[in-house]
Design a binder for these strands. Structure first.
Lengths: 125, 125
DNA sequence: CGTCTATGTTGACACATGTCGAATCGACGA
DNA sequence: TCGTCGATTCGACATGTGTCAACATAGACG
């Protein structure tokens, strides 16, 4: 696949942007097909037990940041952990940064807030 | 299927209870494997565009209740709509009730609130 | 430069999932 | 009772997904 990447004009596999300010609360208005498609990607990313646990490990870590070595003890092999972290990154929920030997993952606070707003009914209840 | 139900001791295929008061916010504490497994089911249920749209259609309907005939216009066949509604029901997000000819679906407000709390960071940000 | 440790990628496999057409069930009306 | 309409279930198929072993890459340290 590295060949294709070199030949093509570097088209990114997923649109990694514009996930934060998405939609009003679900109780307020039915989502359009486009809105649902974009939002469902985030929910789907959290729809796997391993990913949800990895995400909570990063989110609850000090400073909302965690090294892979700190969170790779979730019961699956390390390639699988890397695979899931990549999925979370593609969904816009995490960002990664390499500092020296280790790679650190951080949560995207705006995305968290947006998803929370989606599920927080504005109707008072 | 009516035969099997009559013969077997009525074992339910999915545990339909105890989904509402689950976990503290994700930013507060890493989820255990059990918590993640249970919570991921709800996120997974909303991780499909069609299901998310169906859910928003029901949630935003008057009284948080909608007939299937009102929400079955999401671009897929009616059996598929029924299939997705069943999934949402199994995840504890919806409840169904038959009134005469039509079947009405309603949202479970406590579940919505619980999921919103999960994503609402208590750290102030 | 060589080697070691830490992450990420590839290829392959088993399994789950979304989708539809056809058949079935349930309620209403002629 | 029979026919019709709304909703679910069944059977089948194509696709997506999670998982791992093996390999590749990136930086650190002698």
């Amino acid at each position: 696949m590295s060949n294709a990447e070199a030949l093509l004009p570097i088209l990114e596999p997923e649109a990694p942007a514009a996930v934060a300010p998405c939609c009003p609360p679900l109780t307020e208005r039915p989502l359009t097909a486009e809105e649902a498609a974009g939002t469902a990607k985030m929910f789907k990313a959290l729809g796997d037990p391993v990913r949800l646990r990895l995400f909570s490990l990063v989110a609850s870590h000090e400073g909302g940041e965690a090294c892979v070595c700190d969170i790779s003890d979730v019961g699956v092999s390390q390639p699988t952990v890397s695979h899931h972290l990549k999925k979370l990154k593609e969904a816009g929920l995490l960002t990664s940064e390499r500092r020296g030997t280790w790679v650190y993952y951080r949560v995207e606070p705006s995305v968290l807030a947006a998803m929370g707003r989606l599920l927080t009914s504005a109707t008072g209840a």
